[in-house]
Amino acid sequence: MHEMSLTQGVLNILEDYAKTNGFAKVKTVWLEIGQLSHVEPEAMAFCFDAVMKGTIADGAKLEIVETPGKAICVDCAEELEIASRIAQCPKCGSYKLHISGGDEMRVKELEVE
């Protein structure tokens, strides 16, 4: 389960932000997870409490914001939402798609004390 190491990475980001911005407690974390990111939101939620235990984010609430996959067709320049990296352009039928969004995971927002 790579979500455990990803959650540890989120904690590292939170600790770095705390040092830089001078806060001592994280109350809520909004985590943006793209549909094409290969990250399971349920697994991230499962790992979150365990990884945050005893840290500045102990007891913090995790809010997951899922974003759709987006692509641009190389052949006809159609912009589309996709659910899989193996998708077909509905306009021209091409499989030559350039991923333009939904493959990221990032800390979007924090509520801190």
Rank of each mutant, 00 (worst) to 15 (best):
I64Y: 12
S37P: 05
E32S: 15
W30D: 07
G69Y: 11
L36V: 12
E78Q: 11
G54I: 00
I86N: 14
G9V: 00
V112P: 13
V112C: 05
C92H: 12
D58M: 00
G59F: 08
K108L: 02
C47R: 01
I72R: 12
E81N: 14
V29F: 04
A77R: 11
M4I: 14
T28M: 05
W30N: 05
I72L: 01
F23Q: 06
N21T: 02
P41N: 06
V29P: 14
K91M: 05
I33H: 06
I33Q: 11
H38R: 08
F48I: 00
K61N: 09
M52H: 14
Y17R: 06
D75K: 06
K91D: 13
L62H: 07
A77S: 15
C73P: 11
S37E: 13
V10H: 10
V112L: 03
A60P: 12
C76V: 03
T28W: 09
K61I: 09
A43R: 00
G102W: 07
C73R: 06
M52S: 03
E79C: 01
S5L: 02
A87L: 04
M52C: 10
T28P: 10
L14K: 04
K53C: 08
E15Q: 15
D58A: 05
E81D: 15
R106M: 03
I82S: 12
G9H: 00
A77P: 05
Q88V: 09
I64V: 10
L11A: 13
E104F: 08
T55R: 08
Q35D: 11
E15P: 11
I82M: 04
F23H: 12
E79I: 00
G54H: 03
W30I: 01
S37I: 08
A50T: 11
V26S: 13
G9L: 00
I86V: 12
I86G: 04
N12M: 13
V29L: 03
Q35W: 13
K27D: 14
V112F: 09
A83F: 09
H98W: 04
S100H: 02
D103Q: 09
R106N: 05
V26E: 08
D49V: 01
N12F: 08
V65Y: 10
V65K: 11
I99K: 02
L97H: 08
I33D: 15
Y95P: 02
A50D: 07
H2A: 07
